[in-house]
Amino acid sequence: MRIVACLNGDRRPGSHPALPVSLDQMVQDAHSAVEAGATDLHVHPRGPGGAESLDPQVVGSLMERLRDDGPQVPVSLTTALSAESDPVRRYDLVQRWASPVLPDSVTVNLHEAGSVDLVHLLHDRRVDVEAGLWTVDAARILVATGIPVSAVLIEPTQVQVGDARRNADTIVALLDRAEDRRPRMLHGADATAWPLLEAALAAGMDVRIGLEDTLRLPDGEEAQDNADLVARAAEMASANAA
């Protein structure tokens, strides 16, 4: 089972005292998260001003630092439209990401415009894709198109835990009917982060946690940093496996 540390997401700089934004902060945080039990990393690259960016120079600098100075674990990057709102420009930026510092994988949200073309581009470049399924319609796109993705990321966005679980269950049922056997991960955000992590563990799915998904521990106390969140998730995973 994978425990992915999602270090920063689209949170604004300063939204948490330990949110990693600079290259040094992300590398240091990556080490701490892996030491706490993370098996993989998921990062949203940040430009000089701290905003999300898919610019090839920004992505290249981040991946060079993580390859040279970071922990030797798989690295996933985002391609969300929050990082580049124009699907055409996003495609062009990703197309210009340079070898040999490509990420191990990326997430592509299938409800976003241009997602299917982006998946094919990344597949041609031999970058694994994790299909982000926010909705049942996104799951239908995955099943209907047969696009080449290596894993499925089920990420309901409903605020209430019950609503999020029902959405996730509907997506899972659709994938089961389609006999989709690719690895699955389930996660929530903020109030749903820990309940859905528990549901993922119970279902034998991969999990992720980090300041992208929540700023708080299961008891509601503010987390010190990503390592604090990962350590708690690792404890829960160990207890679930016992």
Rank of each mutant, 00 (worst) to 15 (best):
A151D: 09
P148K: 08
R125M: 12
D169T: 05
T135Q: 06
P100E: 06
R126V: 03
V136R: 12
V106I: 02
A151T: 09
P87D: 02
T107N: 09
L133N: 04
V149F: 08
E84V: 03
R140A: 14
A113T: 12
P156A: 13
L122R: 02
A164R: 13
R165G: 03
R90A: 04
V143M: 01
W97S: 02
V161P: 03
A113I: 05
E130C: 01
T170C: 07
H123G: 06
L121K: 11
V108Y: 13
V159N: 06
T135C: 07
N167I: 09
G162I: 02
D117M: 10
D92A: 14
V161M: 02
V127N: 09
V161Y: 08
A151N: 13
G146I: 04
W97V: 00
E84L: 07
R140Q: 14
L93D: 02
G146N: 05
L110I: 08
I141D: 13
A98P: 03
N109F: 15
S99Q: 14
H123S: 14
V88Q: 15
T107A: 10
P87N: 10
G114P: 06
Q158Y: 10
A113L: 09
V106R: 00
G162C: 03
D92G: 09
E155V: 01
L153K: 09
V127M: 12
V106A: 11
V119Y: 00
